[in-house]
Design a protein around this nucleic acid. Structure first.
Lengths: 189, 189
DNA sequence: TTATCAAACTAACAATCGTTAGTTTTGTTT
DNA sequence: AAACAAAACTAACGATTGTTAGTTTGATAA
């Protein structure tokens, strides 16, 4: 369907604006201007402003859910699973850094149903992460620090990649992955 | 001045609402309702919605600037300086976790002058951080990973503390500091 | 050429926004 | 009791919001 293409253009333009000013501060007239058309014309392609937001966020959240499921159910070691999680975040960030801004900062503006769906996915993602770390500590692969702190500090860094990566020039994805694994898992001292 | 007290109450209530929905999505009527008064009554104590935002953000940014200046100009080792930076972030987070949400997510809604002032402080803060790490690497205290990745991953975690700390129950500040230093500097593997 | 249809347009709506003006309430001081 | 100031109120403003209705444009197919 051709309409899908045009809708995707709108979603992409919106992702950039949402990243810069947040969902609430971006008006349909702002978005239209960025597309070079009038605000009313947007409604030939989308149903509402809310639909744009949920398209951006739910798609990304499902990517993370799918990726985490594969990682968590594998037979890899805890360390290998953590490395795969880092990989997952870097891959998604490279593909859609703009959309991740909405996922991180504007999820609370989702309407009822999608909000619950999103929160459920996020909770399960964090639970899987925690479980991987817990098992890693149990089996002596990971130092027995406070598990919550390990999960929090790692996830904070991975979730903020979208802000930082676009500013880095000429950094190869594979080198980035390798360095992130070193810093996050092996420490800097 | 008594008016300062009432203004501070408004700023505190606003910090909580801004944290939950972001600056743009919080209306003066929302804020008034949280205070148990009418929207117009707010203007007996503040000049504008914008003034509330800048009060929250600039105050915190200056705290970080002052703290970083003391740390950066001391004769401590690079490692000790990093530990002091972790301390600084934890201290500020314990004192004003709600306000940090605005500093992290709504700084772009500051008006021209304050926006430039804020951005200058943030840039200088990051430069100081980078310089500490650089010197630490030069002198062999810190592993020679990509400096930007070290700065970014550490700062991401510290900046996101405000989201995570309030959810942790019964965690002593000193234990938190100790564990954060362990995880951020010494790695988890 | 004519018919078709996606995709743009103009114009307007009801609701809500931050804010102002002027008035009343409340509590303290003289 | 009278006077005062702080802090609340009611009412309304002009601007902007997301969105709808109806119309025109422009490219493609018959």
């Amino acid at each position: 369907m051709k309409i899908e293409t045009r809708k995707q253009e709108i979603v992409s333009a919106a992702s950039i604006l949402f990243k810069e000013k947040g969902y609430s501060a971006v008006t349909m007239r702002d978005l239209a201007k960025a597309m070079g058309i009038k605000a009313a014309s947007l409604y030939n392609h989308i149903q509402s402003k809310q639909e744009i937001l949920s398209t951006i966020i739910i798609e990304l959240a499902e990517e993370f859910t799918t990726g985490m499921d594969k990682i968590a159910t594998s037979r890899d070691s805890a360390i290998q699973k953590l490395e795969n999680i880092i990989d997952l975040h870097i891959d998604v960030t490279l593909r859609n850094a703009d959309g991740l801004a909405s996922l991180n900062n504007d999820w609370m503006h989702l309407e009822e149903d999608n909000l619950q769906y999103f929160e459920k996915m996020r909770e399960e993602y964090e639970d899987s992460f925690r479980e991987i770390v817990r098992k890693g500590v149990d089996e002596g692969e990971i130092k027995s620090f406070n598990i919550e702190i390990i999960v929090f500090s790692t996830l904070s860094t991975l979730r903020t990649l979208y802000l930082w990566y676009p500013k880095q020039k000429n950094i190869d994805a594979n080198i980035l992955k390798h360095d992130m694994i070193s810093v996050l898992l092996k420490g800097v001292v």
